[in-house]
Each structure stands twice: as structure tokens, then as C-alpha cells.
């Protein structure tokens, strides 16, 4: 495969994880402006795992995901009783605090006569695991795709499960869900842990693909984009956020289509799309219709 295409697809795959994490929170009715923080936590934790602590990649990625899940729970516990804009702002404040803390974090050790590890605002260089092991970009893409496919399969199973029904009820109407016998708060906490883990996994992959990360990458632009991808692609299925990322990164950013005025075209299209379909392309209504056709 052509190197440029491999790079684009890898990028789509990694960003899809953080878009999925924002989508999972949207499913239970929470708008987060702060998923970039958990992407960042995952990136830093996994990066430290391989570059500083010499752990194998799989273990480092797992540590990144777990660290991000813990971070998301730490945010969720005091804030999940906040509604709407209050939660969105609390998540934004949390993410900005996280970013500044990363800017202040120094944790460097000497390896092969060279300092590696987080170096404050200067960033974190030398996450060279996949280069040192001679892993080809195409192989890494395969890893990203496999993890993403596994995640989507898991979510598809979840959607059809009893817990999936519970999620939909909470997402559509918390009050009615509670009146139907659901423990709303615990459902949302479980979702927060999952959302954090996904963002962290994406971040861990990202750190290894780019070998260099810096706190500035994890600013609010990434967070709001992640949120927007779900709404563009559609909230009816986990494929929605993936479609949103694909449209933005795959179609517009990478093909140089409308070079120079890409955002003018894309921004306008998104606004018009949302008038036409406020819950995105693959929304619940479309899926419901497809399901009925499928049954016939």
C-alpha cells in the first residue's frame, strides 16, 4: 500500500478511538469537551511505558488505557450529577488543567546517552518502540485496525445486550430510565470508564505512531472535533463516529480537496447537514428503518 494512504488510514483509526469515547458519553447524555485529556493521558502513560520503563507495547497500551479510564472516573465521580453545559464546562476545565500539568511535568531518564521522557512544554521525544523493533507502518496500521475492529465488534455485542438497552434508556431520558428501575448513576460511571479507556488506547497508539508528543496536541480543538465527529457521522451506531472521522480526515484533509478553503466548505456542509439531520447521517431513525427493511 502507498505510504501516504497507510498514514492517513492509521490516523483515522487512532482519532476514531477518541471520537468513539466522546460518542459513548453522548449515548448516556453527557457532552464532553474534555476527551482530549484522556487521549493525552493514554499517550503519555503508554509512551513512558515503552520509552522509559522498557515495557512491551501491549502492556504499555494497556497501562495507557487503564490510566485514562481512572482519569475519566476521577472526573466523572464529582461531575456526573451536573447537567448539560455544567458537565461540558467541568470536563473542559479538567482537560485544560491536565494539559497544563503535562506542561509542568518533567520525568526524564537517560537511555543510550540520551534523555527520554516527558520534558514539560518541550514535549516527549523518543517514543521509538516501533522503529527500534522494525515494525513497518503497514503492520502498525494492521494493529490499529485490529484493535478498532475488536472495539466496534464489542460495542455491537453490547448494543444488543441487556446493558445496551439500559444505555439507550439512560441516554434518551434519565428520569424515565430511573422510573423503569435503572441505576442511572452507576450506568453512567461504567460508561465513563469505557470512554476513558478507549480514548487512552487511541492516545497510546498515537504516541507510538508519531514518536513525539507534546501537551499542545491535547487541547480543546481535539476534544470538540471528537464530539463533532459523532454528530456528523450519526449517533445511531458506533460506526457513526468512524464515518465522521473518515469524512473529515480521510476525504478532506488528506486528499487536499478544496485546498485553501477546506474549512469553509466543510464547516458549511456540517452546519447544513445538522439542520437536515440533527443526530447525524447514521441516526436512530435511519437505522430503525434499515432494521425493519432487514426483517422483511
Amino acid at each position: 500500500m502507498e505510504p501516504h494512504l497507510v498514514g492517513v488510514l492509521t490516523n483515522i483509526g487512532m482519532i476514531a478511538f477518541v471520537a468513539l469515547s466522546a460518542y459513548l458519553l453522548l449515548l448516556v447524555g453527557e457532552i464532553s469537551f474534555g476527551q482530549q485529556a484522556f487521549f493525552g493521558i493514554g499517550a503519555y502513560a503508554a509512551g513512558i511505558g515503552t520509552a522509559v520503563l522498557d515495557l512491551p507495547l501491549g502492556l504499555a497500551l494497556a497501562i495507557g488505557a487503564i490510566a485514562a479510564a481512572i482519569g475519566q472516573l476521577a472526573l466523572a465521580l464529582p461531575t456526573f450529577r451536573l447537567r448539560g453545559l455544567y458537565f461540558a464546562m467541568a470536563s473542559l476545565a479538567f482537560a485544560e488543567m491536565m494539559r497544563i500539568v503535562l506542561e509542568l511535568t518533567q520525568f526524564q531518564v537517560e537511555r543510550d546517552g540520551e534523555l527520554v521522557g516527558p520534558n514539560g512544554a518541550e514535549g516527549f521525544r523518543g517514543i521509538r518502540y516501533i522503529f527500534e523493533r522494525g515494525i513497518e507502518p503497514a503492520e502498525f496500521l494492521l494493529l490499529v485496525a485490529a484493535l478498532l475492529a475488536a472495539t466496534l465488534a464489542l460495542l455491537a455485542v453490547l448494543e444488543r445486550s441487556r446493558f445496551g438497552r439500559r444505555l439507550r434508556m439512560v441516554g434518551e431520558d434519565e428520569l424515565l430510565a430511573a422510573l423503569s428501575g435503572i441505576d442511572v448513576f452507576r450506568t453512567k460511571l461504567a460508561m465513563a470508564a469505557a470512554a476513558g479507556a478507549l480514548a487512552g488506547l487511541g492516545g497510546g497508539l498515537y504516541a507510538h505512531a508519531s514518536t513525539y508528543i507534546e501537551p499542545r496536541l491535547f487541547d480543546v480543538m481535539l476534544g470538540v472535533h471528537s464530539l463533532a465527529y459523532g454528530l456528523i457521522g450519526g449517533l445511531g451506531t458506533a460506526l457513526g463516529p468512524l464515518l465522521g472521522v473518515g469524512l473529515d480526515i480521510g476525504l478532506l484533509e488528506s486528499t487536499q480537496m478544496f485546498a485553501g478553503y477546506r474549512m469553509i466548505v466543510f464547516g458549511g456542509l456540517v452546519a447544513v447537514l445538522l439542520i437536515w439531520r440533527p443526530r447525524g447521517l447514521l441516526d436512530e431513525r435511519l437505522l430503525h428503518r434499515l432494521a425493519r427493511i432487514g426483517r422483511r
Partner: peptide, 26 residues
């Protein structure tokens, strides 16, 4: 005890059958 609340009546994006299943969640 079951409450039929005022105004907020159904899960709008679920089918009628799914709404009934939701009522029997426990």
C-alpha cells in the same frame, strides 16, 4: 411502585415494543 410521569412519557427513539420491554427491565 410504578409512576407514569407527567409530560415525559416515552423513550422517543425506541419502538413501541422496545418501550414495553424497557418497562419490564427489572
Amino acid at each position: 411502585v410504578a409512576l407514569v410521569p407527567e409530560n415525559r412519557l416515552v423513550f422517543p427513539q425506541m419502538s413501541v415494543r422496545e418501550n414495553l420491554t424497557a418497562g419490564a427491565y427489572l
